[in-house]
Design a protein around this nucleic acid. Structure first.
Length: 940
RNA sequence: GGGCGCGUAGCUCAGUUGGUUAGAGCGCUACCUUGACACGGUAGAGGUCUCGUGUUCGAGUCACGACGCGCCCACCA
């Protein structure tokens, strides 16, 4: 095999594995290394990866995200930007803890059994494995990240950023500790933020329970979905203006089962129309009741423990699970005649986002971050930044959703009763005093970072007996700092100065509030810069679609429809999978990933491969024959990038393709500017397959073919020019395709053009409107139409495609005839004709099959034709013409249309009408002619 | 209870500010193993753009309403 030969089979796996490794080794995506090979001549372009959770491996959502990011990164890098895509992973507190707990459970262990230290060791081990797996996947994906800057949300520098941020917020009073009712997961045994609770509709029951009035025979009926919490009731509430209950307010009912007297009170919160208009008030187990309780000074009686079981306050029910207790209590009420009725009831139940256990509102002491402190609001600047357009949100409806949420944001519960995460840097004293770490320094002990400066004594009483708060921070606390913690904040580093604010953030809608909102708030809060536009974490936020299964269902483990990206990569190749994701990624539309589409883009990759192979085979022969010198391509490359290269003696078809490439280049960059990945990919697909391969390559085949003995020396010059154009155009296309299909294009580029340098650092063709050639493109359209018309006649006549037959073209326009004359050779070849007759006069229908078009007629003289089929086709065409002409005539007859529509539109329609009229007359005449012949039984 | 998105060919979807003849891929039909590629070539069939009303000279595109599907937010027991 010689140097440029390309293997027959396209084997994506081998190519992709090779380049994945090579790119890591060559460190091309480290901006400093890239700059040595090609100094950037544009600005900085940076993006911090949405750090994948170290909960396992990457899923299709990641693959879509990384594909989109990588396309933009590679495109901008080729455009000459100094590009940094910073990689990393997230410790993902609760999510990772749940995964490791499940592992433990398989060994029959709980984290409590092995203890905090051992548990943390286990999670770190898991983190290492998962992190490696994720890195390996990203490498396989071709993600052009700078591995030298890889970060983890719990490594020492990031820990330091967390401490710094926490301590500053704490000192400013924006972080406080308080006893409130919060969402509690009885399985994870931790508090959750509102965002970590998902609501699901459930079929449930509404219980109507009689609460007897103390010392009276009457009772009040309350409706509840949670009878088990009645043990913690401390009041019954009605609406103050509810006439049914007005006289009862201030009286006392005896709480059944526990026989405790509780008051009936009035509160405007109560909805008179729901249930009976009277509610039980359980401040310790319901968020609304908690508020009512605080308004009326009620006791808060907790009857459930941390695992959702009844506690000692529940008397005889102690130890029962909340659902068991519910059944028992309902039974007992029934037995006492206190259950009036039950009704089926559909309502939303809050579930733990991670483990789907129904959450429990629970009173506990937690740490909170103030979002809207009147004197020092985190939210207000973040609202302004988006509203005033400092941060551009795409698609823009997400900007509105963001603002809606931000405008009614409330305090963020940041403490978690977990073992995996950043430990809260505050120490407790027996006196109740709270003392934070002295500063944000971090030390690494046994590979695990921790605060290096614990306080020596209590700030309140001076005692030295201090213990660190056992809680850890919500994982999103560290994520919120990601766009600057990754660059070394709080130090004033060179990276921070150069790459912050990042140019772009791309992530899914699901973390708009969790993450994007909090990054914006923390960036604006912490970055020590004057102007808000320098403090924002990113200038543009692009929200991508969701990847769904072929039925449009969300991929989830429980549905069992999760697709592993690696499986797709194995089956279809990374390039084809990336291309599929790109071409299906229309903004705002979810992606229903289907094998059909994957197959078709694998075919596309194969097509590119084979086009390259065709070129290589011919090149080899041309070199052997001496028609091409071995350094032909090197000399070509020395002339600069393909779009800037002047072609010597370009043939007509080269001029056409060059114009198409200029246009395509413009389109691709414009589409990518607007995140219209599907449009860019679609244009590339169509161009490469249906213009480059179907027309251009077919057209030039005879020209570039190795010289035969008969070939005149005069052809050699033409051939060299054709080769020059072919290499230039092919290279141009490879560059445009590279961001989408990096492996395949890199492989072909290195084989065909430059084995030493990566395509990833070559200039991206921008396209120049001065290079558009409308005249030639129009001409090509006519030639293509002529060839297609001739082929169509052949196909309709069922003539063997291999058979060479004569053909005829005629036109009343001399320019059209001249065009056909000039392109005679191509028409002969591509329509597979033995000869081509050109004439100005009309062509007869007899003795052949005639095809009319507005600007020319085509005919295959042939003794056999299927008159009936021709007649059928013509009738249909005539019908369509009549319909269109009717519509046009009506249009043009309308005075208002002529007066109000732009001239351009009116003239266009007139033009079209006259063309249609010509065509209509031709078709009508031909049809009646054929019908006559058919009816008279004349031979075909 | 609010808010958002979607409904275009058998299937999956494009269609940027309203303007000529509504596109693609897959699938389907016919012919073709022609020295890049059958993961291919050539040609073809297939659509009252969910329905209704309106704005407009002109609506797949804008407005309102209906129907169907999906999603998000919300403290109503």
């Amino acid at each position: 095999m010689t140097e440029h030969e390309i293997p027959k089979a396209y084997d994506p796996s081998a190519i992709e594995r090779h380049w994945a490794r090579a790119w890591v080794r060559e460190r091309l995506f480290t901006p400093e290394v890239a700059a040595q090979q090609r100094p950037p001549d544009k600005g900085t372009y940076s993006l911090c990866i949405p750090p994948p959770n170290v909960t396992g491996s990457l899923h299709m959502g990641h693959m879509l995200e990384h594909t989109q990011i990588d396309i933009l990164m590679r495109w901008r890098r080729m455009q000459g930007y100094r590009v940094l895509w910073l990689p990393g992973t997230d410790h993902a507190g609760i999510a990772t803890q749940v995964v490791v707990e499940r592992q433990l459970a398989q060994e029959g262990l709980t984290r409590q059994q092995i203890g905090r230290e051992e548990f943390e060791r286990r999670v770190w081990k898991w983190k290492a494995e998962s992190g490696d797996r994720i890195k390996e996947q990203m490498v396989r994906l071709g993600a052009s990240v700078d591995w030298s800057r890889e970060c983890f949300t719990m490594d020492a520098p990031r820990y330091r950023a967390v401490l710094e941020a926490f301590l500053r917020l704490y000192r400013e009073g924006l972080i406080y500790r308080g006893r409130y009712i919060v969402h509690w997961c009885p399985r994870c045994q931790t508090a959750l933020s509102d965002l970590e609770v998902v609501h699901r509709e459930r079929e449930d029951k509404l219980y109507f329970i009689k609460y007897p009035l103390a010392g009276a025979p009457e009772h009040v009926v309350v409706a509840t979905t949670r009878p088990e919490t009645m043990l913690g009731d401390t009041a019954v509430a009605v609406h103050p203006e509810d006439d049914r209950y007005r006289m009862l307010v201030g009286r006392v009912v005896r709480l059944p089962l526990v026989n405790r007297d509780i008051p009936i009170l009035a509160d405007e919160f109560v909805d008179r129309d729901f249930g009976t208009g009277a509610i039980k008030v359980t401040p310790a187990h319901d968020a609304d009741d908690f508020e009512i309780g605080r308004r009326h000074g009620l006791a808060e009686i907790t009857v459930l423990d941390e695992q959702g079981r009844m506690n000692e306050q529940a008397g005889g029910y102690k130890g029962l699970d909340r659902y068991e207790a519910r059944l028992r209590i309902v039974d007992d009420l029934k037995a006492q005649g206190l259950l009036q009725k039950t009704e089926p009831y559909r309502h939303g139940v809050g579930l733990c986002d991670r483990c789907k256990t129904p959450v429990e509102p629970r009173i506990s002491v937690q740490w909170f971050c103030k979002m809207n402190d009147p004197a020092n609001s985190l939210a207000a600047p973040a609202i302004r930044a988006v509203r005033e357009g400092l941060i551009k949100v795409v698609p823009e409806q997400y900007g509105r959703i963001y603002l809606d949420w931000m405008e009614r944001i409330y305090d963020w519960c940041i403490s978690r009763q977990l073992w995996w995460g950043h430990r809260i840097p505050v120490w407790h004293c027996a006196c109740g005093g709270l003392t934070p770490a002295k500063d944000s320094r971090v030390e690494v002990v046994e590979g695990r970072p921790q605060a290096a400066s614990p306080p020596e004594k209590c700030e309140k009483c001076g005692s030295a007996a201090l213990t660190q708060d056992p809680d850890v921070l919500d994982t999103w606390f560290s994520s919120a700092l990601w766009p600057f913690s990754t660059f070394g904040w709080p130090d004033d580093t060179a990276d921070l100065r150069e790459f912050y604010p990042t140019t772009l953030m791309i992530n899914g809608f699901d973390i708009l509030f969790f993450w994007d909102a909090r990054m914006i708030m923390s960036g604006l809060k912490f970055m020590p810069r004057e102007r808000a536009e320098e403090r924002i974490p990113f200038r543009t936020l692009y929200i991508h679609a969701l990847v769904r299964d072929p039925e449009g269902q969300k991929m989830s483990k429980t549905r069992g429809n999760v697709v592993d990206p690696l499986e797709l990569i194995e089956e279809y190749g990374t390039d084809a999978t990336r291309f599929t994701l790109a071409i299906m990624a229309a903004p705002g539309t979810d992606i229903a990933l289907s094998p059909d589409r994957l197959r078709s883009y694998r075919a596309f990759a194969n097509k590119i491969w084979n086009a390259a192979r065709f070129i290589a085979l011919n090149r080899q022969r041309a070199e052997q024959s001496g028609a091409l010198s071995a350094d032909f391509v090197t000399a070509l490359l020395a002339q600069g990038p393909p779009d800037a290269r002047g072609l010597t003696a370009p043939a007509w078809v080269d001029a056409w393709l060059s114009s198409r490439l200029h246009r395509l280049s413009r389109l691709v960059s414009q589409a990518l500017e607007d995140f219209r990945f599907h449009e860019a990919a679609h244009e590339l697909y169509h161009f490469f397959w249906h213009e480059f391969c179907d027309w251009y390559l077919e057209w030039i085949k005879p020209v570039i073919a190795p010289p035969s003995d008969a070939k005149a020396a005069a052809d050699a010059e033409e051939q060299r020019a054709a080769w020059q154009a072919l290499f230039t155009h092919f290279e141009w296309a490879l560059r445009l395709l590279h961001p989408f299909m990096p492996f395949l294009t890199e492989e072909l580029w290195r084989r065909q053009f430059d084995a030493e340098h990566s395509l990833a650092l070559q200039p991206f063709p921008q396209g120049d409107p001065a290079g558009f050639n409308d005249a030639i493109e129009k001409e090509m359209e006519l030639v293509q139409e002529a060839i297609t018309a001739l082929r169509e006649i052949r196909a309709g006549m069922k003539i063997d495609p291999r058979k060479h037959i004569p053909g005829e073209l005629s036109s009343t326009e001399p320019v059209v005839l001249e065009l056909f004359r000039a392109r005679r050779q191509a028409i002969l070849r591509l329509a597979n004709l033995s000869q081509l007759d050109l004439s100005a006069g009309p062509l007869a229908a007899e003795g052949g099959v005639l095809r009319h078009t507005p600007r020319f007629d085509a005919r295959i003289p042939y003794s056999q034709s299927d008159l009936a089929a021709e007649i059928k086709r013509l009738r249909k065409e005539k019908e369509k013409l009549e319909k269109d002409l009717g519509a046009m005539r009506a249009r043009l007859a309308d005075e208002e249309f002529r007066r109000k529509a732009p001239d351009e539109v009116v003239r266009g329609m007139e033009q079209r009408q006259s063309e249609y009229n010509v065509q209509y007359e031709k078709v009508t005449r031909l049809l009646s002619d054929l019908e006559n012949r058919y009816n008279s039984g004349a031979p075909a």
